[in-house]
Nucleic acid binder design. Sequence first.
RNA 1: GGGCGGAUAGCUCAGUCGGUUAGAGCAUCGGCUUUACAAGCCGGGGGUCGCAGGUUCGAACCCUGCUCCGCCUACCA
Length: 838
Amino acid sequence: MKNSGIDYNKFKDFPKSYDYENIEKKIGKIWEENEIYKFSLDAGKNPPRKIIFSIDTPPPYVSSAHLHVGHVMSYSQAEFIVRYKRMRGFNVFYPMGFDDNGLPTERYVEKKYKVNKAKITREEFIELCLKETKIGIETYKNLWKSAGISVDYSLSYSTIDDRCRRAAQKSFIELFNKNLIQRRNDPILWCPHCRTSLAQADIAIEEKNGTLYDIEFTSSQGEGLIISTTRPELLGACVAIYANPEDKRYISLKGQEVIVPVYNKSVPVRYDESVDVDYGTGLMMVCTWGDMEDVRKWKEHKLNTAIIIDTAGRLTQPSGTYAGLNTTEAKKRIVEDLRSLSLIKGEKSVIQNVGIHDRCETPVEFIQAYQWFIKILEERDKFLRASEEMNWHPAFMKERYVEWVNNLRWDWNISRQRFYGVPFPVWYCKGCEEVILAGEKELPVDPLVSNPSVSSCPKCGGTVFEPEKDVMDTWMTSSLTPLINAGWADPERSGNKKFMNMVYPMSMRPQAQEIIRTWLFYTVVKSVYHTGQIPFKEVMISGWGLDKNGKKMSKSLGNFVEPEGIITRYSADALRYWSARANLGQDLRFNEEDTANGRRLLIKIWNSARFLITNVDNGFNPHEKDLAALGLGAVDRWVVSEFERTLKSCEDYMESFEYASALKTLTDYFYNIYCDNYLEIIKNVFWDDDEKSLVRRNKVLNVMYFISCNLLKTFAPFFPFITEELFLSFYRYFEGGESIHLSVWPEYRKELEDDNSVKIVEILLDILSASRKLRTNLNLHQNHKIDKLLIKAMNKDYAEIINGLGDDIKSAARVKRIVFSDEAYFSTANEDIYIGLT
RNA sequence: GGGCGGAUAGCUCAGUCGGUUAGAGCAUCGGCUUUACAAGCCGGGGGUCGCAGGUUCGAACCCUGCUCCGCCUACCA
């Protein structure tokens, strides 16, 4: 690049301190104004970016109030890799979505406005949701921008927008046509608080303290039978008594009926191997339905049905006097009644594992209703095979996925009896219940406001249609993010198979560990079903940000650290430094000290660059000659050689997503080799004005430029702000280009590795280290110039090397002369070399 | 009950293929301020690598068992 127009004088005024607060704001603006991260299919002439690297980034859900540094950690860790890939010449496709439909948003709005589903109209509710969605998106964007997340925000999608609704509905129709979706009247998981059905993935397990009651039933022959249960309120729903077929105590009950207390109804005795002989009395009551096991027995043994709980979790008429009570109240009442009948024969405290709805923590019940299911149980193998085709980082995270798939119990129920979600593109014929689907061109459609395109039922000719009122599970949409990003359901892209093939399967899916069973799994399901392909090639799973005591940060615990304050006090780059300290997939405690360390590193980077910038001479041109052609001294070759090794190792780490080790390698080099040794050894050349120093100065400047510029580039994925600022205010004049983040990653040049220089400089470093120790022992200032450095070298080769390094040793040890002398008494790390100072 | 991860210096964490005396940062202690940086530099001290066995010439690392912490999962009602 031509550099005759450079104003070298302004380099002399380079700011002494790094004003991160203002500079980060300024750089953020520059990126935005110049659209540095904008995706374009034909992006980049220099360098040409032919291969697309596409990222399926998590769309955060609307409630932005819960954001903490752990989120920044997760997004940053993925972003280190993205920035690295961008500098490696990939055309980065990095869209950001916002997950703002479905129950999470509804829950958030319910809490914030203290409303509930029963007391608000659908329209009012949706309006509030849309309002909060907008606020949430803005808050998120601002935070991600201030954290330096280099997404192309013009590619944003929101899971409630037309595009996403179209995709979700298209997915439904396609799966329906492939016979992978069906509507069934099944017992399902139900949240009495949200009054909606749920899928297995929406359930969390919570340990609760409960009571195990021993209740006396009566056999048809009048014999008392003790049965232990934690749910006496379900007595009215009891449809059978079970024993283990091996249990001799109860063989005689075979064929008998048992009288359920309070209700005085007869239920049959059945046998099943799943009954634990040693639990309680070995007798078990089975209800409609207390848990999944009840459901299984009900199905397999075709038991009677006695439903006594309604959609609000209240007992119904068949429960008799308990009708209208919720389960907790009913339990209390029925226990009182049993007690007065002397039928409670014992009780003890137990810890139960109760399934709760993960959004509202209400214990789930089982009810029966027509629901839409996506078949997943019979296709497990496909989903397991898909996991083999993806590269998992870290590898052990795959196990969690495999475990989940192996433990699936239910097909995926996608029906939700809620308001704010994507509607099913479905009507039912009133005459024959035939399912009428919307046409693909009509999408997105809301059957509550539109009519089907057919005027009569193709099956029975009926002309009256009922719209499906339920909405789809929010994961029905977010499971499509790779396809949404690829324009799979976009009419304007429909002719452009080429684009889809370029970005899909996505190159990388970064995400947090807790949504492996939901987002990751469901995305695999959809991809396999729709395209027969895996959705992405690389899976990158981050750990959690923990608080100081090792607890997961969460709003409810009140232990979360807000990123904004940290960014203000320490800078976004410093927060990213903390994020880079955890190995991928490992949880990391948040420690303000670490961000302070990050800030120290940034300041050091600033100052070391400043040392170069303020010392370049007018007309300085680092590209005049190749480094190798400058006739460098041993120390220069050493620092370059070590850099090349560092670069190689950094690259290898980044390629395997081990950003933490990459950064560690870089900072070790930067501190120990470049700053503390190289700069300390050579800095004399800027103080002395003798002929020798002047000649040396030019070489040193070239070396400093080479190292610091390349090091800056390798730091850029981690610290995008400070590296950009330094690039724009200095290096750009020699490198060209408009952003360090669009510049080319340094080329590893093996020919610059120089083992000989490393060996030679090791001797210098041994002497330097010993002289520093000696100065400390003598209470001498490290820079205080001393007259003589005494050296005793008990090996001829060493003496020769030391002679050759004379100027550098004098410079490094801050001495005027080197004298070989047997009076050198102070040992160095090299047992054949001793030194002394006089 | 099953699965996964973790336990290394006072604290937060590295530790690659099993290989010299187990590392870093912070903290701590001592020293040093005109000459990139005191938000700095130089130096020191600090470890039974969770416990117990085993394999090996050699183990923080591999094997077995156990303890504690975290997460996921499960039908002891």
